[in-house]
Simulated assay, not measured.
Amino acid sequence: MAHPSNTLSLVADIGGTNTRVALANGGEVLENTIRRYSNEDYPGLESVLRKYIAEEGDVDPIATCVAVAGPVHDGKATMTNLDWTIDKDTLLRATNAEHVAILNDLQAQGHAIGHIKADKLREILPGQSGNEHAAKLVIGVGTGFNAAPVFDTEAGRLVPPSESGHVNLPVRDERDLRLCHFIETAHGFPSVEDVLSGRGLTRLYAFLGQEAGDFREKSGKDIMASVAAKDDPRSVEAAKLFTRFLGAVAGNLALTQLPFGGVYIIGGVAQAFAPYLSEFGFGDAFRDKGRFAGFMGNFAVSVVEDDYAALTGCAAHLVALRSSH
């Protein structure tokens, strides 16, 4: 279909396996333009974007922003499992846009906060309502783990990059310490991401098997299926242990950033756990901060149930970027 020239923005969410591309009119992602591409079918991002532009009637976007599952430094993105060059020159060449930007995918999620429809937010814990400049916190739980603060300043929104998934796993008791040793044996360092991710759930299941003297392995997908069916007590125990660590880590991050504007948990694994977080003790673990337990009630916690939030964040970021020029 034909689109007006130099009016719409092109936004993309680049994961390890697939890339989703869409057009946005201001801050609104046009859902009927969302297309998905398998990364293994293309030599690089430029090929994906050129194909998308052709499929959308040779659309001429005024701005382009991409969200990347990996660190972004000096306008260049590096992806762990994808040998693509993703930099501003690539975006300019592929899209001929006047403004281009590259965000880490978690940063994009941070820019989406405040632009997500209310029915796509599942409240886990109530909290106080902060003022318009209150800090927010976005936590990503999916293939990996990461978190970043969201600051709304007089000069605009700032979502600084972070690699929060690679800090030490918190230890609360003797079993936690044994878990750290279990992970350390395989990976050399017990990080938060080694537990709070899709593959982390499988490690918790394996650890519980070792603890019981009955080692078995099970995929994260099968564990969650068993949690729903209630047909495997160990799956439920692994999910409860996962939930306790998620609550503890989210609480630690909340005390670090003081997000009176709310904590927002995003990602595929977060969405899978959303129906069980309250039942499995997320709130107790989140508030388990000694004399600061009551203070933790200031922070509302929600799970974002919007698969296109990173695209929305890219669109919102471009609106802010263009208005500042």
Rank of each mutant, 00 (worst) to 15 (best):
M1K: 14
A2P: 00
P4R: 10
S5I: 03
S5R: 12
N6S: 15
S9Q: 02
G16M: 13
G16Q: 11
T19Y: 05
T33Q: 04
Y52E: 08
D60R: 10
A69P: 02
A69Y: 04
P71F: 05
V72I: 10
D74S: 14
T80A: 08
T95I: 03
A97F: 09
A97T: 09
A108W: 00
G114V: 06
D119E: 15
K120T: 01
R122G: 00
Q128R: 13
Q128H: 10
K136A: 08
L137R: 11
L137C: 13
E154W: 10
E163V: 01
S164K: 12
D173K: 06
L179R: 03
L179W: 01
H181A: 14
F182T: 03
E184D: 14
H187V: 08
L204Y: 11
F207Q: 11
Q210S: 12
D214I: 00
F215C: 05
F215H: 10
R216M: 03
S219T: 15
D222F: 00
D222V: 02
F242Y: 15
T243R: 10
A248E: 13
V249K: 01
Q257S: 05
G261E: 10
V263H: 06
F273C: 07
G281S: 11
D284L: 06
D284R: 11
A285T: 10
F286R: 03
F292M: 15
G297L: 01
A300P: 00
A300E: 00
V301A: 10
V303Q: 04
V303R: 04
E305C: 09
A309V: 03
H317S: 02
